[in-house]
Amino acid sequence: MKNSFVPFSAFALVIGSLSTPAFAYLDGATGSMLIQAVIGGVAAAGMFGRHFISKAKNAVSTVFRKDGTRRDS
């Protein structure tokens, strides 16, 4: 198992040395779109997390409620 690392790393080294420069750049609009996508992803993850935590709290409080009724929010 540990000997399989050597051929893969040698292959990656050969492929990496054969690549040519891309001569690519990121202009202002592309950078702005990337920043906007990152901010949107963070906001979506926060809203998903808030929703998931709310559902988990509701499920736990329903299980541990003394009178057995369910509280819908």
Rank of each mutant, 00 (worst) to 15 (best):
A10E: 11
A56G: 07
F8D: 09
V14W: 05
A37E: 08
L26M: 11
S61N: 14
S9Q: 13
S9F: 11
L18M: 12
F64L: 12
R65L: 01
F52V: 13
M33S: 13
R50E: 14
S73W: 09
V42A: 06
S19V: 15
S32D: 05
L26R: 12
A22W: 10
V42H: 01
R71H: 13
T62R: 14
F48C: 08
A22Q: 15
V60E: 01
L26H: 08
S4F: 03
S61P: 00
L18N: 05
D67W: 01
G28K: 10
R50D: 12
A10V: 09
V63L: 12
L18E: 05
G16K: 03
K66D: 06
D67T: 01
A45M: 13
F11A: 10
L34E: 04
G46D: 09
T30F: 04
V38G: 00
A10C: 09
V63E: 04
K57E: 10
K57R: 14
G46Q: 11
V63W: 08
H51N: 15
L18F: 09
K57G: 03
A29E: 06
D72E: 08
S54Y: 09
I15L: 13
V14K: 06
I35N: 01
A12K: 10
N58G: 12
G46K: 10
G16L: 03
L34T: 03
A24K: 15
S61F: 10
M1Q: 05
S61M: 13
I15K: 13
G49R: 01
S4V: 00
S19H: 14
S73C: 06
I53R: 05
S9C: 10
F48V: 10
K55L: 05
G68Q: 01
L13M: 11
G49F: 02
A59E: 10
L13P: 00
V60D: 00
F23M: 05
A44K: 10
G41E: 01
Q36W: 07
G31M: 11
D67R: 01
T69V: 05
A10P: 00
G49L: 03
T20G: 04
L13Q: 08
F64V: 07
G41W: 02
R70L: 05
L34F: 08
I39L: 13
G49E: 01
G49M: 03
G68M: 03
T62N: 13
L26K: 11
R50Y: 15
M33A: 14
F48E: 08
S54V: 04
V38A: 01
T20C: 07
V63T: 05
